[in-house]
Simulated scan of single mutants.
Amino acid sequence: MARRFVVGPLLLASVLIGAVACAGEPPTVIRVIDGDTLDVRVDGQDERIRLLNVDTPETKHPDKAVECLGPEATEFLQHLLPEGQVVELAFDTEKQDSYGRTLAGVFKDDVLVNAEIAREGLGVASYVAPNRRFLSEVEAAQAEAEEAGRGLFDEEIDCTVPGMIAATSTAISELPAEYPDDVEELESLIGEAAFAAGLAAALLASFDALEGAVDSPSWVIHEHKLKSARDEVGAQLETLQNWDDDVRERVAEIEEEQRLEHERRAAEEQAEAERQRLAQQEYERQVEAERQRAAQAERDRQAELQRQPQSPSHHAPAPQNPAPAPSNPSTGTSNRDNNGAPPGHVHKDAPTSYTGPRCFAPGGVYWRPCP
């Protein structure tokens, strides 16, 4: 009942200034265009109505992408104002905008639709001078949505400003206080931090654009909230950038440590390879020296054999144990061969292949193999 009491004087004032719809066929909804625009048939004529003092996310703008909760705002207005719904229109100082749309407050059963959209968190208060007739009611509805965390003020919705701030805060809280020693893990963390930093930078850019574009009582009322959010996001971005610098420095340290370790191992492997090469050379040198010693020994043996006297090929080898020759009883002397050698003896200068021990006869001229 309180709401009806407030709206009644507004409608009366609009009649007094000639800004209420003319008597006759009541305004009827034809279709909803988006969250803050609809077509209404008034006295048999179709008019495009732009809701005053409220702005919803874009869905049909030719130069903008579909914005966060834009489709939800359109769906909400479609549900609130279905085709054929009878409404009341109230106007302000300027009745049309630069696009030729009729600027109006739309009432359904004495409820200001403009404010209901803001109360749901699907639109925000907007002021374009000189029309401010419904601004205070829309701002009050927006404050309710902010307090309740609905729609554009819901930090559980990723695309909202509170949602992006919360996501950035969560991303920062999940970054480790101590850095791992694995470069791949660090680079993955850098990617996560970069994503959060991108969100923060996009938010700051949005705040900059809003500060440059807004010039209204609504801006004055909510300026402190925007600045507070901007300060928070700015601090988050600085934290992320500092963290990123620290992690990249740690990555550089690890990579330098790995480089030095690689060089140390390479030097050790090279030294070991050189040691093995020298050991192989020494082994081959020793093998060659031993081969040469063996070859020299064989040459010396062959030379020694060649220096020893050789027996004639037709000479029979001397018996191993020749029997002593019998004495000649008639002469009283030992038997000797024609050369004067005792039996079984050979002259010391006679060639022979015998290399064993020699037993010489008295006088040392003749010898025979020792028994």
Score class of each variant (00 low, 15 high):
69 L>T: 00
109 D>T: 02
264 R>Y: 11
9 P>A: 05
182 D>K: 03
117 I>M: 15
165 I>R: 04
8 G>S: 09
308 Q>F: 08
220 V>L: 10
165 I>M: 13
8 G>L: 12
75 E>K: 05
34 D>H: 04
252 A>V: 11
235 A>G: 10
305 L>N: 14
166 A>V: 14
324 P>Y: 04
358 R>S: 05
296 Q>P: 01
241 Q>C: 08
253 E>P: 05
251 V>Y: 06
317 P>D: 07
124 V>Q: 10
271 A>K: 10
351 P>D: 12
252 A>G: 13
16 L>K: 03
62 P>T: 01
320 Q>F: 11
215 D>E: 14
112 L>N: 02
216 S>D: 12
81 L>K: 06
204 L>E: 00
270 Q>K: 15
365 V>I: 14
171 A>F: 03
211 E>D: 02
178 E>L: 10
16 L>M: 09
290 E>S: 12
124 V>D: 05
283 Y>A: 13
361 A>C: 10
34 D>R: 02
131 N>W: 03
48 R>A: 07
10 L>Y: 10
344 G>H: 01
270 Q>M: 14
307 R>Q: 15
194 A>T: 05
294 A>Y: 14
227 K>E: 05
276 Q>H: 09
17 I>C: 08
282 E>K: 14
58 E>L: 00
78 Q>H: 05
194 A>W: 00
104 A>D: 03
332 G>L: 05
257 E>Q: 10
10 L>T: 06
11 L>Q: 13
44 G>F: 12
283 Y>C: 06
94 E>C: 06
343 P>Q: 12
158 D>S: 11
251 V>G: 08
101 R>W: 02
72 E>I: 04
122 L>S: 03
148 A>L: 14
79 H>P: 03
224 H>Y: 08
81 L>S: 04
244 D>V: 05
343 P>I: 13
196 A>G: 08
364 G>Y: 04
200 A>K: 00
86 V>G: 02
102 T>L: 11
58 E>A: 00
281 Q>V: 12
291 R>Q: 15
4 R>H: 11
265 R>K: 14
213 A>H: 02
308 Q>P: 07
141 A>I: 10
55 D>C: 01
245 D>E: 09
215 D>A: 09
94 E>M: 05
181 D>E: 12
366 Y>M: 01
145 A>W: 00
221 I>R: 14
285 R>P: 06
21 A>K: 06
176 P>F: 10
52 L>M: 08
257 E>I: 07
349 D>Y: 11
100 G>L: 04
165 I>H: 07
